[in-house]
Nucleic acid binder design. Structure first.
Length: 573
DNA sequence: GCCGTTTTCGGCCCGACTGTTTTCAGTCG
C-alpha cells in the first residue's frame, strides 16, 4: 500500500506531541514538527522518492536520521519510535491536546498527578474538585476545559473559502466604520486563498490599538470573547468560526500583514533569511540593531531582505523565496486573463438557465465565448442528453451564434466516462462538437489501477479533450477516488488532452499542489466554473485563486486564449 | 534532530494574553 505524504506528516506530528508530553528536548520536537510540515507540503510523493532511491536529506530540515525514519515509514507503514513512545505515554493523551487551553505541559501534569487517561476521567476530576487543587489550575481553567471539551468535534472542520468570504465581508465592513481603524485586511490562509480556512486572521492599522480592540469585541456576531488585550483579541463567532484580530500602528501595518498572512513555513523562512543578514524581523518591522528599517508595507519588508514582492497565494515555502531572490517569480494568472468559460450547464439538463441566459451572463463578465456542456444520457438523474437531443441543441446553438454579435457559444457536452473507459456518446455525434468535457459520475469505488486505466482508455478516444474534476473529491464530504493522478497527467500530456481545474467551491479540483505539478509537466489546464446557473459563473474566481496557488500563469491556462486558438488546440492530431 | 562563509558544538523565530502567581509558565498563533 502506498504511503501518502500526509500519513508521514501525521506520524511525525503524533510523535512530536508524545515527545512533548514526555518532556523531551524541545528542539528535537520542533525538528519532527518541521519535518511533518515539509513532507506534508511536498508536491511529489516522498514514498516515490524513497522507492527511486532518491536523497531526502536535500529537503530543508531533513537530515540523516529523519531521512532514515521516512524510509522506514514508507517501507513498513509505521515507525518503531512512535510505537515505543506510545508505550511510554498513553496515546489517548493526544486527544486531550485537542482541547483548547490544554497543552503538553498541563496534559502531562493531569496524567501524572491525577492519572487522567481520557475525557471521562478529566470530567470526573473537575466535578469532584480535584482539578483546582492542582498547582496552576483554578476556577477559570475548569470552565475553559469544560467548554473546550464540548467543542472538540464541533469546530474541528475547516470552513470552505466560499463560506468564509461572507463572514469576512461583514467583519471588515464593521471594522471600517470605526474611526480608530485606518486600514484593515483579512490575512492568514484566507488571504492566501486556501480552499478552506481554519480561522480568520484580521490585521488592523490603528491610531489607538486598545480602542480598536475595544471596538472589535462589540461586533454583534461574536458569541464569546476568548481573549482581549491591548493589541490583539481572539473571539468565537455565532457561526462557530474563530477570529483573531491584531492591531498595530500604521508604520507596522506591512510587517503585521506579512507575519499574519504566513504561511508559517514562509514566515519562518524569511525570518531566518533576515537573521542571516543580521536583521531582526517581527510583526512590527525589520530592525537593524535598534533601528527600524522597514514595516509600513509588505513590499518594503521584502525589499529590505533582498526579495521581490511575493503574492500571498504562493507564500508556502515551496520554492518561491529562492525565485524572489533571483527576481524570477511566475506572473500569476488573474481573473482579467480569463476570456471564457468552458464548462456550463443549462436547463436542458440539471442547470436552471437557458443557453441565451448563460450567454448573456458570459457577455456581462466580458467573455468572448462560453461553452455549453450539458450532461450526457448516462446521467439519467440529470436528464442527460441523448444523440437526438444533443443534435437539436447543436442546431439551436448554430442559430443563436448567427444572431449574436459579441459572444461565441461553443458546442460541447460533459460526456460520461463509462466503466470500461468508453465515452457515453458515439463518435458520429461527438465530431459535430467544438470539443468535449469528459468526466466520471459513476463507479467511484474502483481500485487505483482500474480507475486510472479507465480514464486513460477514455483519453485514447480522439474526441476526448478536457478531463473534468479529475479526482472527484468534494471538500469535507467525499475523498478523491483512487487514481494515480500523476500518471493521468503524463498520459494527458502525451495525448494533447487537457485537465480541468473545476472552480465549484466544494470541488476545487485539482488542488494547488497538482496544479503545480501540471505546470512542471507543461500540461495545459482549463479553469471552469461548472456553473449550473447564471450566478455560479462567478465561481470562476475560486478557480483562479487555486490556479494562482498552483503557480499557474495565463499561458498555462487554455481559456485565456481566443476562440480560434482554442479550436486549434482541440484538434488533437 | 538539524545545521554551518564567525561554528562539527551550541545554537535553534518571536511576541501577546491569561491565569495564577507574586514574577512567570503555559498556550497560542
Amino acid at each position: 500500500m502506498a504511503i501518502h505524504n500526509i500519513e508521514i506528516a501525521n506520524i511525525f506530528n503524533k510523535l512530536a506531541n508524545l515527545l512533548e508530553i514526555a518532556n523531551e528536548n524541545p528542539f528535537r520536537i520542533r525538528a519532527y514538527r518541521n519535518a511533518a510540515r515539509v513532507i506534508g507540503g511536498l508536491s511529489h510523493n516522498a514514498a516515490d522518492l524513497v522507492e527511486d532511491g532518491g536523497d531526502l536529506t536535500g529537503l530543508p530540515g531533513i537530515g540523516k536520521d529523519l531521512a532514515e525514519k521516512i524510509r522506514i515509514i514508507v517501507k513498513t507503514g509505521e515507525l518503531p519510535l512512535l510505537k515505543k513512545m506510545e508505550k511510554r505515554v498513553p496515546p489517548v493523551l493526544n486527544e486531550l491536546l485537542k482541547i483548547e487551553g490544554l497543552g503538553p505541559k498541563r496534559v502531562q501534569l493531569l496524567h501524572k498527578k491525577l492519572g487522567i487517561q481520557n475525557l471521562n476521567d478529566l470530567k470526573k476530576c473537575i466535578e469532584s474538585g480535584k482539578l483546582r487543587k492542582l498547582r496552576g489550575f483554578g476556577e477559570k481553567a475548569e470552565q475553559k476545559i469544560l467548554s473546550g471539551m464540548q467543542h472538540i468535534r464541533e469546530y474541528s472542520q475547516r470552513v470552505k473559502l466560499v463560506d468564509a468570504i461572507t463572514i469576512e465581508r461583514s467583519i471588515i465592513q464593521y471594522l471600517k466604520k470605526s474611526k480608530y481603524v485606518k486600514k484593515v485586511e483579512c490575512a492568514g490562509s484566507f488571504r492566501r486563498r486556501k480552499e478552506t480556512v481554519g480561522d480568520l486572521d484580521i490585521v488592523v492599522a490603528s491610531s489607538d490599538t486598545k480602542k480598536s480592540i475595544e471596538y472589535f469585541v462589540r461586533f454583534d456576531e461574536i458569541a464569546t470573547v476568548v481573549s482581549q488585550g491591548n493589541t490583539r483579541s481572539t473571539v468565537r463567532l455565532h457561526s462557530g468560526i474563530q477570529v483573531d484580530l491584531r492591531s498595530v500602528p500604521l508604520e507596522s501595518y506591512g510587517a503585521a500583514l506579512l507575519y499574519f498572512t504566513g504561511s508559517k513555513a514562509h514566515s519562518i523562512a524569511i525570518r531566518k533569511l533576515a537573521q542571516k543578514k543580521n536583521l531582526k524581523l517581527n510583526e512590527y518591522g525589520i530592525y537593524k540593531g535598534n533601528k527600524k528599517v522597514a514595516g509600513k508595507t509588505e513590499e518594503e519588508m521584502y525589499r529590505q531582505i533582498g526579495l521581490a514582492y511575493i503574492e500571498p497565494e504562493i507564500r508556502e515555502d515551496r520554492g518561491e523565496i529562492e525565485l524572489a531572490r533571483k527576481h524570477q517569480l511566475p506572473r500569476l494568472i488573474t481573473l482579467k486573463d480569463i476570456r471564457g468559460d468552458l464548462h456550463c450547464h443549462t436547463n436542458a439538463t440539471d442547470g436552471d438557465a437557458s443557453i441565451e441566459m448563460m450567454a448573456q451572463k458570459a457577455q456581462e463578465l466580458g467573455y468572448q465565448y462560453i461553452a455549453i456542456t450539458d450532461h450526457s444520457k448516462h446521467l439519467a438523474m440529470a436528464h442527460g442528453l441523448n444523440e437526438k437531443r444533443l443534435f437539436a441543441q447543436i442546431k439551436l446553438i448554430d442559430k443563436l451564434n448567427s444572431k449574436l454579435k459579441n459572444i461565441v457559444i461553443l458546442k460541447s457536452i460533459e460526456v460520461d466516462i463509462l466503466e470500461d473507459g468508453s465515452l457515453d456518446l458515439p463518435k458520429n455525434i461527438l465530431k459535430e462538437l467544438d470539443f468535449t468535457v469528459c468526466s466520471i459520475h459513476s463507479k467511484f469505488n474502483l481500485n487505483s489501477k482500474k480507475q486510472t486505466g479507465r480514464i486513460i482508455r477514455a483519453m485514447d478516444n480522439p474526441f476526448f479533450n478536457i478531463l473534468a474534476h479529475p479526482t472527484g473529491r468534494l471538500i469535507n464530504q467525499r475523498e478523491p477516488y483512487e487514481i494515480d493522478l500523476e500518471k493521468i497527467m503524463e498520459s494527458a500530456k502525451e495525448r494533447n488532452c487537457i485537465l480541468e481545474l473545476n472552480a465549484q467551491p466544494e470541488r476545487m479540483d485539482m488542488d494547488d499542489i497538482h496544479c503545480k505539478i501540471a505546470k512542471e509537466l507543461r500540461l495545459k489546464m482549463a479553469i471552469s466554473s461548472d456553473a449550473h446557473s447564471k450566478s455560479q459563473m462567478d465561481y470562476i474566481k475560486f478557480g483562479v485563486y487555486q490556479a494562482r496557488r498552483g503557480w499557474l500563469e495565463a499561458t498555462d491556462v487554455i481559456n485565456t486564449r481566443t476562440v480560434s486558438e482554442l479550436k486549434k488546440l482541440f484538434r488533437r492530431s
